[in-house]
Design a protein around this nucleic acid. Sequence first.
RNA 1: GGGCGAGUAGCUCAGGGGGAGAGCAUCCGGCUUACAUCCGGAAGGCCAGAGGUUCGAAUCCUCUCUCGCCCACCA
Length: 817
Amino acid sequence: NNTLQDVVIRFKRMDGYEACWFPGTDHAGIATQTVVEMELLKEGKTRKELGREAFLARVWQWKERYGNEILEQLKALGCSCDWSRTRFTLDPGLSRAVRTAFVRLYQEGLIYRGEYMINWCPRCETALSDLEVEHEEVQGNLYFVRYPLEEGGYVTVATTRPETMLGDTALAVNPNDERYRHLIGKVAILPVLGRRLPIVAAEEVDPEFGTGVLKVTPAHDPVDFQIGQRLGLPAVNVLNGEGTVNENGGPFAGLDRFKAREAMVERLKTEGLLEKIVPYKHAVGHCQRCQTMVEPRLSTQWFVRTKPLAEPAIQAVKDGKIRFIPERWTKVYFDWLENIRDWCISRQLWWGHRIPAWFGPDGEIIVAMDEEEAKRIARERYGKDVELRQDEDVLDTWFSSALWPFSVMGWPDSTEDLRTFYPTDLLITGFDILFFWVARMVMMGLHFLGEVPFREVLITPLIVDERGQKMSKTRGNVIDPMELIESHGADALRFTMVHISGKGRSARFSRSLLDESRDFLNKIWNMARFILTNTADLPADADLSGRKLPWEDRWILSRLQTVIGEVREYLERYAFHLAAESLYHFIWDELCDWYLELSKVRLYGEDLEARRTAQLVLRKTLLDVLHLLHPFLPFITEEIAGYLGVDVSRGVYPKPEEDLRDPEAEEVLSAFRELVREVRAMRAELGLDPGCELALGISEGGRASLLTGELGGALSRLARVHTPRETDQRKAVRAARGVARDTSFFLYLPEDVDWNALRSRLERNMAKVESELASLEARLNNTEFRAKAPEEVVAQAAAQARELQARRARLLRFLEE
RNA sequence: GGGCGAGUAGCUCAGGGGGAGAGCAUCCGGCUUACAUCCGGAAGGCCAGAGGUUCGAAUCCUCUCUCGCCCACCA
């Protein structure tokens, strides 16, 4: 994520934009508090023993020690953030933004307090939002329990949580269910507690499930709560905060919820009320932070009314004001916002923004920016100074994160930063926080600023380990980036991240990829070393203009322009991995494997001017390549450019120079390389001494004179051949014949060789040519292809066919001979 | 229950309407004065399966299978 952000920031900065990256961290309420609580536990203390103030002091201590680690990691990774703008969600400025947002939303009726069904984590002892609950398939049981009827007989009810029976206040059946219609209005008796339960009608009941009779527990189930609300049923809470049964649980009071379940089952068995137990797999909610099973529970909490905020957030994306990349995430975003439910924002924690609400002596709520303002309001309301008690709870961390795009810029003040940088251009993040963060930033940004917080959202894949598993501390497969930076370097880590960033939803990380990246860096380093040492004597005023460039220079410069164009295009569409790949192959396969070798002819030659030309092209290419690479590999590029007295980070990102494009040179070098490759292959397959120099003759082909003439020196160096006059050829024992493109050649051999190997090579070439030719000719003979395919495609196929035919003819002749 | 992603060489993956690609691994040969973290050469694939669209499909559409993930108040 951060590598990609830095690639974009550096690229845009080099391309002339005022690219500002606001770094910062959030306070991670539950996670941080949990960690510190664990620390305390080891010392045998609890947070409650310490008290709020001392505990918070302790958390701040922890934060000072570890909270900046992530920023240190970013720095080590080379992220070019504006560090002077570093922010933390609990900073005074951001806290003021949080209070301001809370107060305004409350005044607008978009924040309310009330008793509703929420998710409760008995370990964290706090309410959670729906998003903080992860549903996991669990193997449980469906218990079929008989509820005696007041009038005699019984009905059977199926439940997965028998312990919640203690909170039953009714039974419900579907009004259209013929089987039970006669029971509506009758009364059942709750086992164990003997409570009278009215049998009611409710559409929510699915006749197909279980027995078609639902036990209604309004305090511990969302659907039951809804039924209870509508029908005015009492809600009996049977659980304490830590997950034990409370005083409403009769004989089970004090038992842990799971012990209570067992006890209830035993009790029902002995009373003959348990009809059967059926194994049942179902999804159960778990706390995102501690994996504890959450309990739906009726509780008084603070909520954000989300529908009015969600609608503009949907519209903004529909209007194209925000674009998701890849686009498919748009649908996911819509689905969530369209079905959004109110957001429970209060947490029974201490680490976080304390809710700016005070209670008067009569329990009335006063929401204010601070205690002073609350007191002022209270004075007006009560006509005198009264005792005020601030709400103990803090806000969901994501509430403050939702304000991030403008709180970091000084909101609610109208600041220069806000005017300059809001809305921002780009957010890069993972899909795991699309709802938690992205959607909420859009809602809050639109609400408070009237404008989207960012125009583009780039969703990156999530990194998984070698086995495709999500990285998590509980799995123990997390990797400290600092360790990787130490072993392979930040640039290698960055390059690897870019390499795997083009994936679908997950990107598999493995250390062998780091080796690959390191090898590439090593290649770059050695390439630079070669160029720097071989151009050390280049006069400062030497200039490329006016020089006649040989084919290989024209070729590499032309290829360079193509690569510049490609890299730019890929960066513009955030296809980082393709940009990196393009550079990787250009540098390794073309620049290093071919051009550097070709340049040696002149670098090590006698002709000073030719040497100067080669040096200038090498320098120019190196500089362009360093600039192209810099957003990906800031460290190595700065180091190398430093030797040339260039600050690459402040350089301009290369643009293609059209006048350097040279299709003819590319064609010539392509033929040249093909010839060299063919000679090398022949040499290898004939088992010839790799060091021995062979005589080569070119018999046919449009570029024969060029390949042995202007490119003769290069050919001789790269293919280890010389091109003697006709007369010298007699010295050879025999000649091996080969074909490369439209060129056929003779390799004069100093000794007898394995002619079968040569024949087999020619035959393999022949087979390849024939099969290609067959498919080409089939296409060309197809009248529909000729009629409907684009002209250039047909022309290209025809040209290819001609070349293959020529090649086939020559191969055939050689085989006969 | 709804949705998404992935299935291409032994492995990890890129590509995404007109010649099947890379890295690693394998085989053969090289310490050639930038680099053995290297160089040269070779072998290896009905691009998951079945239909369809098209002159042309690994690529687009439909369905199926396998794996992974997200969302969801069937107790």
